[in-house]
């Protein structure tokens, strides 16, 4: 018990010293990656809710207002997490900050895995929209949301996948023994 307390205090001091010196630690990289995941999820909520509002909500209905509020919450969260993530500009290297390339192997693996999956979704979804975008039957099938809505769904789905994969892979479920 006493040993655990000493260990925790040592870890805390180490984190404070590293933060003061601006050292890029693996933990800092993972925290920043987690923020990018949260931003993606919040942006996806905004995009998907805006489509859902077109699809389900009659103006003035309760559903319309609920979807509108959720959309607003998504926008606020995007700004909130973006502002919070700005503090990492000092603590992560510039390459990591902009291209999501990290020195810590697991953070880099999670980042690459989520970006690769997102890239596939965008690539195949974009391909379908490009091929079918001019077809009358396709546009009719999209009637409630339109082509712009379909692009929103594609972007929202891709961003949701990106964020959820990051948060899922970084979840804290491993016991430290």
């Amino acid at each position: 018990m006493e040993m655990d307390e000493t260990r925790n205090k040592t870890n805390e001091s180490r984190k404070q010293i590293n933060a003061f010196l601006g050292v890029v630690t693996a933990e800092v990289e993972q925290q920043y990656l987690a923020y990018t995941g949260k931003i993606s999820v919040a942006a996806a909520i905004f995009l998907l809710m805006s489509v859902a509002q077109d699809f389900f909500g009659d103006k003035g209905s309760v559903m319309y207002w609920v979807l509108g509020c959720t959309m607003l919450a998504g926008v606020i969260l995007v700004f909130w997490f973006s502002i919070k993530s700005m503090k990492f500009y000092r603590y992560t290297n510039r390459l990591g900050f902009w291209s999501l390339k990290f020195q810590d192997e697991y953070a880099d693996y999670v980042s690459a895995f989520s970006l690769r999956t997102t890239c596939h979704i965008l690539m195949y979804g974009g391909f379908l929209l490009a091929i079918l975008g001019d077809s009358q039957w396709f546009l009719e099938s999209l009637t409630p949301i339109g082509l712009t809505g379909a692009i929103f769904v594609l972007l929202g789905g891709a961003m949701l996948t990106h964020g959820v994969l990051i948060l899922w892979k970084l979840r804290e479920d491993d016991a430290d023994e």
Binding site: R7, A26, E27, Q30, D104, E105, Y106, L170, D176, E177
Partner: peptide
């Protein structure tokens, strides 16, 4: 050794060690 101590010793995150 804890996972954190091993992680610190080799310069990776605890998550890397645990996974």
């Amino acid at each position: 050794l804890s996972q954190q101590e091993l992680a610190d010793a080799i310069g990776v995150s605890r998550k890397t060690i645990s996974t």
